[in-house]
Design a protein around this nucleic acid. Structure first.
Lengths: 220, 220
DNA sequence: GTCAATTAGTAACAAACTGTTACTAAAGTC
DNA sequence: GACTTTAGTAACAGTTTGTTACTAATTGAC
């Protein structure tokens, strides 16, 4: 932690996710006692909050996230390792290739991750929820994959993040219509089955459709 | 301001919106010098952040918002009236009937609103943007309207918030499919034209449709 | 080699959804 | 009564979406 002070005024916390062994993993540091902690800092300077979050990622994962967004601020009486009155949480993702873990940090499977201070537990839950909500609008899945990937890889990533199965034909048709990927000349053979073509993320401009209102609103 | 301290550690700020004279209005207080300010406080206690925001609304508008959500945290070197290192902004809406303005506060049209400290200007812009993004998932438009309203009122509110026209038939068909309103026995005559039936917001449970992926992602 | 198994990729159909035009209904104004 | 204005609906065509069913290319078993 660069500027760790107990009872500090505010902290910046990071929920950094990557894919490992077919599941989501979160970057953690050993915290006080036998617990674990999300990477956090208590920046003194007037740096933009997002700069502090990027610095946290460099410091704990050795690289910058492929995607990073502010999640929310957390306060109230839920405990935080820094004792900060307010904590600003960021959520980010990083590809498996770049996802190292520097000394004192390690990747832990999200399912069954436990041992956080209450406020950081809330951050992790909110991060998963935010990723699902923003998956349609942010290139989260693409930034979790290597630079080239098969369409089955991409679909599997969406399924992992959403927690449900998708239809192959529909998925590819939607992807095609969105002009988000372009094929490379390479093919990958996984051993069994037909080889798959490799694609890269290359979003092209398209006219924003002016749809009507959706009313996805649910009864509380 | 309940707990105003210069150079405080963190503040809670509120962008509270209502409808006035066919446009959106934001609640402001006279700030330092000739500028204006969004309502803010620097809570000392460990109250949940949203409780501080609700208290701000009660204090400056005399009532609680019909809808209230955390917007984002703001930091960096953009000036804030409290000199706070970090400001947690909330966005809320309140119906015109309940929208009073207590002493020292007033409603100001959002178009052409100016004179805020830089950080609060950013909050206002982010609030408008967030409202558009969440309009499909939160009952924002309904909470800006009185308890009963006509479908034309509702459509006009959506058009005001989205900043574009909508088709009447499509709007009503989507609304019908969403089971969000129920008709009352009352009709309202505005003077000219056929009277309109009054409806109330009464969302009913419905099965959440398992749609495929959307890829609304745009080229950056 | 032949055949089953496995994974990739696509065509095509039916159902649902959306944008639009055009209509009917009920009020006020002249 | 004719015209204007606003409310509300029906119906059509084009698009999107969920699904089934196919073809293609590879590995492994025999």
């Amino acid at each position: 932690m660069t500027a760790a002070r107990r009872g500090a005024t505010h902290s910046v916390d990071l929920v950094l996710l990557t894919q490992r062994d077919g599941t989501l993993a979160v970057l953690v540091q050993s915290g006080a006692g036998k617990g674990v902690a999300l990477p956090w800092s208590t920046p003194r300077s007037a740096d933009a909050l997002v700069q502090s979050a990027r610095q946290l990622a460099r410091s704990a994962a050795g690289a910058e996230p492929g995607w990073l967004e502010q999640l929310s601020a957390f306060g109230g009486d839920e405990r935080h390792p820094a004792g900060a009155a307010v904590s600003v949480a960021f959520v980010g993702v990083i590809g498996a290739a770049a996802a190292r873990a520097t000394k004192g940090a390690q990747w832990m499977a999200v399912d069954g991750a436990a041992g956080f201070a209450p406020r950081q537990s809330a951050m992790l839950a909110a991060a998963i929820s935010a990723i699902r909500a923003r998956l349609d609008h942010s290139p989260i899945a693409f930034k979790l994959l290597p630079a080239t990937f098969t369409l089955s890889d991409l679909q599997a990533m969406y399924e992992l993040l959403l927690g449900r199965r998708l239809h192959k034909a529909s998925f590819r048709r939607s992807l095609q219509a969105a002009y988000l990927v372009e094929p490379t000349d390479e093919w990958r053979s996984e051993g069994r089955g037909r080889p798959a073509q490799l694609y890269r993320y290359a979003p092209r401009k398209r006219r924003t459709s002016r749809r009507g209102v959706r009313f996805e609103l649910l009864a509380g």
